[in-house]
Design a protein around this nucleic acid. Structure first.
Lengths: 346, 346
DNA sequence: TTTCAACACGAAAACGTTTGCGCAACCCCT
DNA sequence: AGGGGTTGCGCAAACGTTTTCGTGTTGAAA
């Protein structure tokens, strides 16, 4: 087992100094062509590659981006990672991933673990627990120590940093307007509790669309799901709540759900209640994942362009990392959503 | 903006040597209680945390695991990552992710980038292109340099290392036997080309099950999909091929598909052809992802326990990293699959 | 008063790089 | 032959740690 070769070993073998080897390999013209070629040949033979850790220590930068997300088994988040990885790779960066599992403590611990030299900057989406507790000191301290952060999707006004979001409000509004244009008169929304910023914004979009068309918002048509735990584990409960929604509102003919799962579950319950989609009931979801695409009927949905979110976030971060200027100016990039029409609407 | 504080700064501030500070913080009894307390108080005040990079350089280990996978927007792979991250975190390791995008070159580049000191070991699943070219030199060289590798799911005999796989053969066999037990007499398989090891094994399981029941395998019932590109982008082509399968085999009453997408598409085509599931046609897929769970009808599927795969792989790797013994003994852990029955079978 | 252990701390090496600077050796010109 | 400019290379510092070893001071025992 031949361990990785270092400058020192090459130097000893060729009877020159370490510095000479380094310069020769970096094609410094301080070194004669003779020795340069000799050293380069030797290095190639032994497949020399500089040690990243040593370089990181010397340069005080790791060329690595830290990503902290609430969960990874999730189409949206994994697609964002894919976008980040894509531009990070292109620009010579690696990507290190930490999962918060929607927990405040894990978010803090993960960030502390990475903030001590392992990475140059963060790209993250805030955990639900953090949003609920509204404790953002770990973000602020990280930024204060000179480590840039780019937030995406679940962002928060209290923290001053670059952000990449989609226009949740407008996207939702457009979706609901689409339902209205398609003839729906009794439209419900299935959303989350308000502390999740995106849930709140989407609910506002829904209300605004109704208002614009002089529809009276009814509290009975607004279903806010508590998400104490992973929704996947509480499907029956979700189904029951949606069933009540249908039973309480027999005239219901349109549903806007703030995520795929809610939308799919709504369709499932509707089918059980012998409602035809899209004839009796039209459904629109949010987030264009695999579920929407392969559901039957295909789910009309508001696409968030997760890939672009990741790409943009990575670009913002790397630009900041490599920019000379120390100026503190932060931008919030808002990406437009897109309504992808499938069979769940007319 | 107060940058991170170092030992040197503390030392200067308190007018002691760097070594003293280090020892005091590590509670060495070489240092008097007085100075120890003084230094610890000061360190706490300035929130001193040792620099990971410097530690990595000194200790020659990074406490970081490199993961290379073909894609991340994929229920199976992201769930494996989740499993890896879980035990990695518990044991004090971080996780750095590289994507090969099923490309040989990207796989090589990613590995080279990480192998130069950034990580202590790899957990990976081989890209399709690599499997096709059967060029495994990058794995072998990495191992030869003393960096351990654990492979999962897509593994290969030619490389000597720890492996974690599911019993694809047995899982498939059981699935097909289930179809037979349920009364199917004309069972097709939708699989990949043979160079994908898991595809080949699953096909073998299918054949074995038929043979055990004295069914004559028919080549017309074996549909091998070419996967030059991402299947998601070639859905229509996939649908067409499956449609031919149905048309050519009117008596078809059972389908075993080696992944979720093939199974779902088969169901979709069947529905279009007015076949009822599970009355006229029973379908079983492989990989228990979100699609199977939320499809209509729910897809009976062979679960791979992705989470456990990740956990086991991480345990194997970290055990090897922290084991004193230099012994070269590799194990292949085979996890059992599980048939999850839903509505697509009787 | 001398001797010696215990104590408390500093110096320095090491991990693997890069790079500014110093310094010989050589050549050329006067 | 002496001065000045090039050429080619080595030295050493620096990044932030940890740890071994050395050393000066103290106090007590002889």
């Amino acid at each position: 087992m031949k361990r990785k070769v270092t400058l020192k070993q090459i130097a000893k073998e060729l009877d020159v100094s370490i510095g000479t080897v380094s310069k020769a390999l970096r094609n410094s013209k301080e070194i004669s062509e003779d020795t340069r070629e000799k050293i380069q040949a030797f290095a190639k033979l032994y497949n020399y590659k500089p040690n990243n850790i040593a370089l990181s220590l010397k340069n005080r930068k790791t060329k690595t981006i830290g990503i902290i997300i609430p969960e990874i088994v999730h189409h949206f988040f994994s697609k964002v990672i894919m976008g980040i990885e894509k531009v990070a790779n292109k620009r010579g960066y690696n990507v290190i991933v930490g999962l918060s599992n929607e927990s405040f403590d894990k978010e803090v611990i993960n960030m502390e673990m990475l903030a001590n030299g392992s990475i140059d900057g963060f790209i993250l989406s805030i955990s639900k627990e953090t949003l609920l507790q509204q404790d953002y000191h770990h973000f602020k301290e990280t930024i204060a120590q000179g480590m840039p952060i780019v937030m995406f999707d679940r962002v928060v006004n209290e923290v001053n940093c670059d952000k990449v979001i989609v226009d949740d409000f407008q996207g939702s509004k457009n979706a609901v307007k689409k339902l209205i244009a398609n003839g729906c008169r009794h439209i419900a929304i299935i959303t989350t509790k308000d502390y999740v910023s995106v849930g709140r914004l989407r609910t506002q979009g829904y209300l605004e669309a109704l208002e614009e068309h002089k529809f009276e918002p009814e509290s009975g048509l607004i279903l806010k799901i508590v998400e104490e735990l992973d929704a996947e584990d509480h499907l029956e409960e979700l189904e029951r709540e949606i069933e009540y929604l249908f039973k309480d509102n027999p005239e219901l003919d349109g549903i806007f759900a703030v995520n795929e799962l809610y939308a799919l579950t709504a369709m499932k319950v509707a089918r059980r209640l012998n409602k035809n989609i899209p004839e009796d009931l039209q459904v629109i979801g949010f987030t264009d994942g695999v579920l929407s695409k392969h559901a039957t009927p295909g789910l009309t949905t508001v696409s968030q362009h997760a890939l672009q979110i990741g790409e943009k976030a990575a670009e913002l971060l790397i630009d900041k990392l490599e920019g000379e200027t120390e100026e503190e100016s932060y931008q919030t990039v808002v990406l437009e959503t897109e309504l992808i029409e499938r069979e769940s609407t007319k």
